[in-house]
Design a protein around this nucleic acid. Structure first.
Lengths: 331, 331
DNA sequence: AGGGGAAGCGAAAGCGGTTTCGCTGACCAA
DNA sequence: TTGGTCAGCGAAACCGCTTTCGCTTCCCCT
């Protein structure tokens, strides 16, 4: 019966103005008298007019869509950043087009052509952490590119990522605040950028307090079994250790097992702090936390990336998201 | 220098045919001689022509975009389904527009209007599991709506979700295959649909083997501390229990702690199996698994939802994804 | 009173395709 | 031959909105 969908010309007709005037009035662009503008707007409201977003995008040459390139979308960290960015973008009526595993596709060119055909408004590249750099793709697009949870080798790339230096500092600061002084560190590969920076900044923080590691830093892997193995070794070698800063929650979980197996109480004898905040990622609820950890701020990274991408001119360079200590039972 | 972007009329001109002929030739629609079609196609390739996806969508009235409604995008389960669906859709050049927390927004109407303005091609509703139904929104859209990881009260809604009945069965079958006969069950609230169905189907499976629960089913909450509390009680009451089917991995983790605290070996004295496959969700690596669990198939749900939504006429009703037992150290 | 500038609005072009419709010519049967 | 079909192609309309450009008015200054 009633015209199912109201178009701009309907509004123009009803308001007794031209199509172009109606367009300008609704968009607030160009010179239009306040009276006309108001009149058009109220009639539009009265008719229940809604812009045809598709046509609109088309005319403007922008698609209201953001391209997202990932290394592996099923990576748990990637998923968090992705969901968070998508939420933020959705709130701004921006769709996302996900190209999984296209970051280092040997033929990224194809993805890029597809994105250009789509008239993508911008690109988000989601990495898998700060352990290794991601290749820079900025110059291959003619739209803004922003990097999340990774870093590139081009210092001018717009990047938002976690702050490994600060992670090391806040972890140690937390342990110190709990009165611990004999602190050990178990972490991943010695050539892993994130592991190295966390270890180095932690050491600096200790030095500021006039301390040093209570045992040599154990470099290994980002795995639970390594955490158990290394913790056992640490306790055997330095029985007076009263806290272990673990490079990740996986390592911390293994360490806890070993510490308990060694007959020490957690956190009575030995405090443990991890990094990643897995429990939050899993439970989605604030209750029943167990492991004290450092949240690297993945959701915040996703939010900020989405926000910055839409800004006119984001400042180039790396922007760090502050890590947060999440206190629980192990300290 | 060279025309930066090739348009269809360029192709038509180069091929010496009209714009409309070129369009038809490339789309394969309408009557076109094979020779002409081929000629147009090769010239298009030669020029490196790519459709302007935006204009194309516009002309066709479809946006190549899928609307996604979630209850809470930061829920870990939701994130998995979302990432999986987005990956699948991205491979098919479909973008997604995420409306978080809009499933039961008191004013869903607004979201719906926005989606319609966008000429969304379809809608995916991602729920947070089979514990409770999601309101049906199908009738409010004029495009296909599909429900993932939840169920509605309308039996005609197209739904893809996990199979609680089968979860109970495979869990018990697995324990039986490990030679266990004294099986207990710890799960969540007695009015939780998922908990109830898993418990009921598990009981049936036991009955088929001529068995029954070795201890009364413990209903409680989906939480680790409940798992610990209930497991302790089970062991105290029925010391001969040799396996516990836990309604979730969180419960299983708590149960493991309690079993060990009671001096029993896992899996020597007591086998444990959970549900959810958290470790997979976290580690993103196959190594160092600890807990035996039932994977409910979230990624598969995401994939199927994406695939089915694009099909011409998906069959109405609930379609279940088969759960998979993931064997690890606790059985 | 006359001239110039700017505000306000509409006609029309354009965006890049798809699709309807009508025209031409070939082929076939009578 | 002549009339009727139908395949193949192009002209033109159309999708719904934005934006350029030019035409009126109106106002103000001299």
């Amino acid at each position: 019966m009633a015209k199912p969908v109201i178009t701009l010309s309907d509004v123009a007709a009803a308001a007794g103005v031209s199509l172009s005037t109606a367009s300008k009035a609704l968009n607030g662009t160009d010179r239009i008298s306040a009276a006309t503008r108001q009149h058009v707007r109220t009639t539009a409201d009265r008719l229940g007019f809604r812009h045809n977003a598709l046509a609109r995008s088309f005319a403007r040459g922008r698609s209201q869509t953001i391209g997202v390139l990932t290394h592996r979308a099923s990576n748990p960290f990637t998923r968090v950043v992705l969901a968070s960015a998508a939420t933020e973008l959705g709130a701004k009526e921006q769709a996302i087009l996900l190209y999984d595993a296209r970051i280092d596709d040997h033929d990224v060119t194809e993805s890029i052509l597809q994105l250009r055909a789509r008239r993508i408004d911008g690109v988000i590249v989601i990495g898998t952490g700060t352990s290794f750099p991601t290749p820079s793709l900025t110059s291959r697009f003619d739209v803004p590119v922003i990097y999340a949870f990774t870093y590139t080798e081009d210092p001018d790339d717009v990047t938002i990522t976690s702050d490994d230096d600060e992670i090391g500092r806040v972890a140690i600061r937390h342990l110190l605040s709990k009165g611990r002084r004999k602190i050990a560190h178990i972490t991943a590969e010695p050539h892993d950028n994130a592991a190295v920076r966390r270890a180095a900044s932690a050491k600096e923080m200790l030095a500021e307090a006039g301390l040093e590691w209570a045992a040599p830093v154990r470099f290994g892997r980002w795995r639970e079994d390594w955490g158990a193995e290394a913790a056992a070794a640490v306790l055997a070698e330095s029985p007076d250790v009263d806290a272990i800063f673990c490079g990740s929650d996986a390592i911390a979980r293994g360490a806890e097992r070993a510490v308990r197996a060694a007959g020490r109480d957690v956190p009575g004898d030995v405090s443990l702090i991890g990094v990643d905040n897995w429990e939050e990622l899993m439970h989605d609820q604030r209750d029943s936390r167990h492991l004290t950890t450092v949240d690297v701020g993945l959701e915040e990274i996703g939010r900020q990336v989405a926000a910055h991408l839409l800004e006119p001119d984001p400042k180039p360079g790396i922007q760090y998201v502050a890590p947060q200590v999440v206190t629980a039972e192990t300290t």
